[in-house]
């Protein structure tokens, strides 16, 4: 074919498509993602980093231990290992709901290790790190002390909670 011949429209379109796809691939490679666990507590959605949650299991029987503060409802037997359970609603200052099947997210980070009682696990998903925005300056209440950032999930803004901040609150 003659080099001087006018380029076909389809060729031009194909070129644009290829360039666009290539650009997308570059963006995909550069896009750092992070896993998050979205859950419900007191009727509201929150999230933890997935790397902080070792596993998620039905709460089952929580064995009460005398003398513990109200935010520690007791112990669970996790395949033969005894683990504590922490009631997150206490720290979020949200009303206690009575979910049909409460769940425990087993959280492990920097020496902190405990099951965290939540109403329901909503989703486990990957999001771009860039999608995590700083917490709203206007955020108020107990949750403000625990929030790491804000993310949009399924069209809803939810607070990403910081396990280390939660651990620090318990240590106080």
């Amino acid at each position: 074919m003659d080099d001087d011949a006018p380029q076909l429209k389809s060729d031009r379109m194909l070129e644009i498509v290829k360039q666009t796809r290539q650009a997308e691939q570059i963006v995909d490679v550069e896009l750092e993602t992070v896993k998050i666990v979205v859950f419900l507590c007191g009727g509201k959605r929150y999230a933890f980093y997935g790397s902080d949650i070792r596993e998620i299991l039905p709460a089952g029987v929580i064995s009460w231990v005398p003398g513990l503060p109200s935010y520690l409802p007791g112990l669970i037997n996790l395949r033969g290992d005894i683990e504590s359970v922490l009631d997150l609603a206490h720290f979020l200052d949200t009303p206690h709901s009575s979910p049909a099947a409460p769940m425990v997210a087993m959280a492990v980070k920097n020496g902190f290790r405990s099951g965290i009682l939540v109403d329901e696990i909503d989703d486990v998903t990957d999001i771009p790190v860039s999608a995590i925005n700083p917490p709203l300056a206007t955020l108020s209440g107990a949750v403000r002390d625990l929030v790491l950032g804000e993310i949009e999930h399924q069209g809803q803004l939810i607070n990403l909670l910081d396990l280390e901040k939660l651990a620090a609150k318990i240590a106080l």
Binding site: V65, P66, L68, I82, S84
Partner: peptide, 22 residues
């Protein structure tokens, strides 16, 4: 016998509780 988990151990010990047997 298993020890109490770290989050619980201190407070349990204050009440004389030192371990758990499932």
């Amino acid at each position: 016998i298993q020890p109490f988990p770290p989050l619980v151990a201190g407070r349990a010990l204050e009440n004389g509780l030192w371990g758990v047997i499932p």
